[in-house]
Amino acid sequence: MQVHWLPHAWNPAYAGVRLRCLMPQGALARQGVRSRLLQDGQPLPREGVVVVQAKWLLDAGTPEGLRSRTTVLQQARDAGAVLVLDSFDNYFLNESGDAARALLLQAYREALPLFKAFTVSSPGLQPLLQAELPPGTPVHVVGDPVETPDALSTYESWWRRHHPGRWSGHWRAAQELREHRHARRQARQLLWFGNHGSAYAAGGMSELDRILPMLNAVAKDQPLRLTVVSNSEQRYREVLAPATFEHRYRPWDRLHFLRLMGEHDLVLLPARLTAFTVAKSNNRMLLALAQGVPVMTDPLPDYLPWRDYCAMDDWEQLARHVHDPRPLAARASAAMPAIARDYSTSAIARQWLDLLTRIQMQ
Rank of each mutant, 00 (worst) to 15 (best):
R109M: 04
E110K: 09
D78W: 08
S35A: 04
D89Q: 00
L104C: 06
P45S: 04
Y108G: 00
D89G: 06
L38P: 12
Q75G: 03
A81Q: 12
A79E: 12
T70L: 13
V72N: 11
R77N: 06
W56V: 07
L93H: 10
S96F: 06
R77V: 00
R36M: 14
P43Y: 02
K55Q: 14
A117D: 08
V51L: 14
G48W: 02
R109Q: 13
R46E: 15
S96T: 15
L114E: 02
N94G: 01
T62F: 05
A81G: 03
N90E: 12
T119M: 00
F88C: 13
L105H: 00
A107V: 09
K116R: 13
L57G: 05
Q42H: 13
T62E: 00
S87C: 14
R77S: 12
A100K: 15
L105W: 02
T71D: 15
A79R: 14
L58T: 03
A99T: 11
N90A: 12
L38G: 09
L93N: 05
A117Q: 05
G61E: 03
R77Y: 05
Q74M: 05
V51N: 11
K116Y: 14
A60T: 00
L58W: 10
G80W: 06
Y108S: 02
L66W: 03
L83D: 02
Y108C: 00
R101Y: 01
Q75F: 02
D89A: 08
Q53H: 09
Q39P: 10
Q53A: 04
G65M: 00
E110L: 01
T119A: 03
A111E: 04
A117F: 11
D40E: 14
A79N: 12
W56F: 12
Y91I: 14
L103W: 02
R109K: 05
Q106N: 15
V49A: 04
D40L: 05
N94E: 08
A107F: 02
V72W: 13
R36F: 13
G97D: 04
D89K: 07
V49G: 08
A81P: 05
E110M: 11
L85S: 11
A111I: 02
L57Q: 07
F115K: 07
E64M: 00
P113W: 09
L66D: 05
P45M: 12
Q74T: 02
R109W: 08
G48N: 01
K116D: 14
E95Q: 15
D40A: 09
R36L: 15
L105K: 10
D40I: 01
V82A: 11
V84E: 01
S68C: 14
L112D: 03
P45Y: 10
A117W: 04
D59W: 09
Q106W: 13
Y108L: 07
L38T: 15
L112A: 05
V82Y: 05
L104D: 05
D40W: 04
G97A: 12
V49M: 02
K116G: 15
